[in-house]
Design a protein around this nucleic acid. Structure first.
Lengths: 206, 206
DNA sequence: GTTACGACCTATCATTTCGATACATCAGGC
DNA sequence: GCCTGATGTATCGAAATGATAGGTCGTAAC
């Protein structure tokens, strides 16, 4: 869901549409596109349902006197209702959360969720991908001789990509479990995968 | 383009919609979805523009006498116009050919193109991805400290995926160049592009 | 100074695509 | 006999896309 991403970004700082787009396509990288044709309608919806409001930043540096700007940047800020809505979206870790498009967004805002949800999503995603690996491997075995080189190479590469992502998920899950363990004096430093999680110490609000 | 994929598959053998979908999502694996909502309209378009025709397979085994089937499978076959159209699509290796969605389809049907086109598409794709790598790396360097662990990890993983695909492309390009070399007594027979299109083993089963 | 240019930023719209669903046939299990 | 799941064709509302238009601002060339 796109609302999710917008609320998640707006939770960190007020922003206008153009910047939202830049951040999002930077954060999600190759995962997701996000065109203006979906962003601005989404902002309109969120605004009309009260999850975000416009945010007039005093005198934004350069506005002469009472000079009213005709159509400048429109900075949005998240409201209390918006935070509530965001928490709903963060909490729901249904089967749709581990689909290709959705997972990236969920993951990008893992810092705002609790460890239970994180683990549930990571494991759901892993299962999803392992199913896919199974399907691909079966298909490869079945049709190996009947396909030309390029099709075969495409399938091989696709399979390898998915397997790699499974391995990535496994590392993440291991880390997640390790940092959740209450006992274990095993963590003065682990060579493995850093995990300097300052970020989650205070929480307090979010 | 979806027409491309349909024509490409139909060029190998006549098929009905359901099978087209299965093949395509098997061939393109995780790359592309292809829902019925786009497949059937596409078949209709191709049919009405004369690129494909229905293919009545005699008495398809199980039809009692004159028993007219209400709505069975509809097998399509590519026509001469369709092959022409397919060749146009195969030849055009414009900047759109190395976009994420399109590249997979093009690659899957590399066997039906010439070596020049293959190389042009592969190299275009590589350039495209290298640009992306540059952008991601720049973004990572710029924001390394300001991001939380998960966002960082997401970007890192995304970058690694793209870099891996660039390496894959490099191998393919190298192979392609090596097999294209005109000297080199390594080609008593050309493995290249066959064209014995007998539509081997006339279906038999679906 | 003023003009031009490129960046920043909001916005819309026709076309395409998805996801879900309806409906129908058929094979096999129990 | 009945039920379930695979096979198949087809459509529809709801979304997203890609292209594009248009407005503002800083700045550098002339």
């Amino acid at each position: 869901m796109l609302q999710f991403a917008v609320l998640g970004l707006l939770h960190d700082a007020p922003m206008h549409g153009y910047e939202l787009r830049k951040r999002l396509s930077s954060v999600l990288g190759a995962f997701r596109a996000l065109s203006y044709g979906s962003l601005y309608p989404c902002l309109r919806n969120l605004h009309s349902e009260g999850s975000i409001v416009e945010d007039e930043p005093a005198e934004p540096r350069g506005t002469r006197a009472g000079e009213l700007r005709k159509r400048g940047r429109i900075v949005y800020r998240i409201t209390a209702e918006g935070k509530e809505r965001l928490n709903e979206l963060l909490a729901e870790a249904g089967p749709s959360s581990w689909e290709d498009e959705t997972f990236g967004v969920h993951f990008a805002f893992f810092g705002q969720t609790d460890a239970e949800t994180r683990l549930r999503i990571l494991e759901g995603r892993r299962i999803r991908l392992e199913e896919r690996v199974g399907g691909l491997r079966a298909g490869l075995g079945r049709t190996r001789e009947r396909l030309d080189t390029y099709t075969l190479e495409l399938q091989r590469h696709g399979l390898e990509s998915v397997e790699r992502e499974v391995r990535w998920l496994n590392e993440l899950i291991a880390t997640e479990r390790a940092t959740r363990r209450p006992f274990a004096a095993l963590s003065p430093e682990r060579p493995h995968h850093d995990t300097t999680r300052q970020k989650e110490a205070p929480d307090g609000e979010h």
